[in-house]
Computed example of a mutant assay.
Amino acid sequence: MGSLAYGTGRQALLDATISIVATGGLRSLTYRAVAAEAGVTQGLVRHHFGDWETLVHEAAVYSVRKSLDTAGFETDEPGYRRLSPEMIDLVAGDRDLQAFQFELALEARRRPELLPVLTSVYEVYREAMRRELARNGIDDPDLAWAAFAALDGIVFQLTVFGDHEAASRALGSLRALLISRSEAGAR
């Protein structure tokens, strides 16, 4: 087994977890698989996370933060600039990250004990969308929920089918709708 540079072990284990789940589903997630993917011992996985549920939860939290950071979604800029075709390119650059989250969502249907993890993931995303709308003059939690659901669907389609052009057009339409709503509210 190789060794990881000090301070990179936890992140490497989380990245390995995401990769394993993205390619083989949540049922393929074992300490052995994570250790092999990260090039470390199983004991290091246990040391960092203790149990399987904590590993899944920490990977979910990490994936949300990484997803929001990668897509540049959280910004102080008005005008929905982050909801642009460039965001599609950034999301497409790490389709495993999105696949991990969608695998978690599907598995939560079969395993209700995962619902709290999934709920916290989606609450973070919905809150980020609510802030994006508020920054642009829209204080409507239901619209934020709907806009995030549309964005989530676009990302899902991109993750599964890989059609960047269609995803960019759909995101452009969502952005135009939100801009129109912001302008109508400003009058």
Rank of each mutant, 00 (worst) to 15 (best):
residue 117 V to S: 10
residue 27 R to D: 14
residue 139 D to T: 14
residue 94 D to N: 15
residue 15 D to M: 05
residue 112 P to D: 06
residue 125 Y to E: 01
residue 29 L to H: 08
residue 56 V to R: 07
residue 63 S to N: 01
residue 123 E to S: 15
residue 66 K to M: 12
residue 30 T to Y: 08
residue 78 P to K: 06
residue 173 S to W: 13
residue 168 S to H: 07
residue 47 H to S: 06
residue 25 G to L: 10
residue 20 I to V: 11
residue 37 E to F: 02
residue 76 D to T: 01
residue 99 A to N: 05
residue 81 R to W: 00
residue 11 Q to M: 11
residue 21 V to F: 03
residue 153 G to D: 14
residue 91 V to E: 08
residue 33 A to S: 07
residue 61 V to W: 05
residue 179 I to Y: 03
residue 182 S to Q: 03
residue 35 A to F: 13
residue 153 G to W: 13
residue 107 E to D: 13
residue 128 A to Q: 01
residue 163 D to L: 05
residue 92 A to H: 12
residue 80 Y to A: 05
residue 32 R to A: 13
residue 16 A to F: 14
residue 62 Y to E: 06
residue 69 D to Q: 04
residue 123 E to F: 00
residue 80 Y to K: 01
residue 78 P to H: 02
residue 52 W to G: 03
residue 180 S to R: 09
residue 104 L to M: 05
residue 4 L to K: 14
residue 164 H to I: 08
residue 154 I to R: 00
residue 90 L to F: 06
residue 3 S to W: 12
residue 19 S to C: 10
residue 181 R to Y: 03
residue 19 S to R: 07
residue 6 Y to W: 04
residue 34 V to S: 08
residue 154 I to L: 06
residue 50 G to E: 06
residue 73 F to G: 00
residue 171 L to G: 03
residue 98 Q to G: 10
residue 153 G to L: 07
residue 48 H to V: 10
residue 127 E to I: 03
residue 77 E to H: 01
residue 168 S to D: 04
residue 89 D to R: 08
residue 110 R to V: 10
residue 116 P to I: 01
residue 83 L to Q: 06
residue 59 A to P: 05
residue 44 L to H: 11
residue 134 A to S: 02
residue 60 A to P: 02
residue 12 A to L: 08
residue 59 A to W: 03
residue 158 L to T: 10
residue 1 M to Y: 06
residue 171 L to P: 00
residue 90 L to P: 00
residue 118 L to W: 12
residue 75 T to D: 04
residue 52 W to T: 09
residue 178 L to E: 03
residue 129 M to W: 00
residue 177 L to Y: 11
residue 174 L to S: 03
residue 162 G to H: 07
residue 136 N to L: 00
residue 24 G to T: 14
residue 92 A to P: 13
residue 19 S to H: 12
residue 157 Q to C: 05
residue 17 T to D: 13
residue 24 G to S: 14
residue 49 F to L: 13
residue 129 M to H: 08
residue 32 R to V: 12
residue 186 A to H: 02
residue 32 R to D: 08
residue 51 D to T: 08
residue 147 A to K: 06
residue 72 G to N: 15
residue 166 A to F: 11
residue 135 R to S: 02
residue 72 G to Q: 13
residue 167 A to N: 06
residue 162 G to S: 08
residue 89 D to M: 03
residue 104 L to A: 04
residue 118 L to S: 09
residue 184 A to W: 12
residue 49 F to E: 09
residue 99 A to K: 12
residue 75 T to I: 01
residue 3 S to I: 15
residue 174 L to W: 06
residue 120 S to G: 04
residue 148 F to K: 07
residue 140 D to M: 12
residue 6 Y to D: 09
residue 36 A to K: 05
residue 107 E to Q: 07
residue 98 Q to R: 08
residue 164 H to Q: 11
residue 151 L to R: 14
residue 79 G to I: 04
residue 127 E to P: 01
residue 75 T to C: 00
residue 39 G to F: 13
residue 71 A to F: 04
residue 42 Q to Y: 02
